[in-house]
Design a protein around this nucleic acid. Structure first.
Length: 109
DNA sequence: GTTATGACTATGG
DNA sequence: GCCATAGCCATAA
C-alpha cells in the first residue's frame, strides 16, 4: 500500500521544481526515503513512468543530467522553451540547473 | 514465495 | 568519452 502516497510525494516534488531548473531521481528518492522510509531511484522512476504525464517530468533527469532516449527529444524542446541551461551533449547542466528538493526532514516544524 | 523488469547509480575497463 | 557489470528497491507476473 501507500504506493499512491509515494507517487503523490514524487509528483509533488516534481511539481515544485521551478522553471529553468531540474533535479535528479536520486535526490528525490533520498528525500522521500527520509519521509516515507522507503526509497530508491528505481521506484521514483517507476512512479514517473505511471504518473509522469501529470507533472513536469522533463525537470527530472538522471544523475548526469541526461534523460532516456524516448524522453530526451521532447525534454529538449521544453528546456529550450524554459531556458534550462543545457550542455553541448544535450544533457541538462546540473552545475547550474540543479534544484535541491525541499528537505522536509529538517524544514518542517 | 520466487523470478523478471525498470524514466537509476556507481565503479571499472 | 563510451560500454559493460554490479548493487539496490519496489512492483508485477
Amino acid at each position: 500500500m501507500a504506493e499512491e502516497e509515494y507517487g503523490e510525494a514524487v509528483l509533488a516534488i516534481v511539481d515544485l521544481v521551478p522553471e529553468g531548473r531540474a533535479t535528479t531521481y536520486g535526490l528525490i528518492a533520498e528525500v522521500l526515503h527520509e519521509q516515507l522510509g522507503r526509497g530508491g531511484p528505481r521506484n521514483v522512476a517507476a512512479v514517473m513512468a505511471g504518473h509522469g504525464s501529470l507533472v513536469t517530468w522533463w525537470r527530472v533527469v538522471r544523475a548526469d543530467g541526461t534523460l532516456p532516449a524516448h524522453l530526451a527529444d521532447e525534454a529538449r524542446q521544453a528546456y529550450l522553451g524554459e531556458g534550462t541551461p543545457l550542455r553541448p551533449t544535450g544533457a541538462v547542466d546540473l552545475a547550474k540547473a540543479v534544484w535541491l528538493p525541499p528537505d522536509i526532514h529538517s524544514s518542517t516544524p
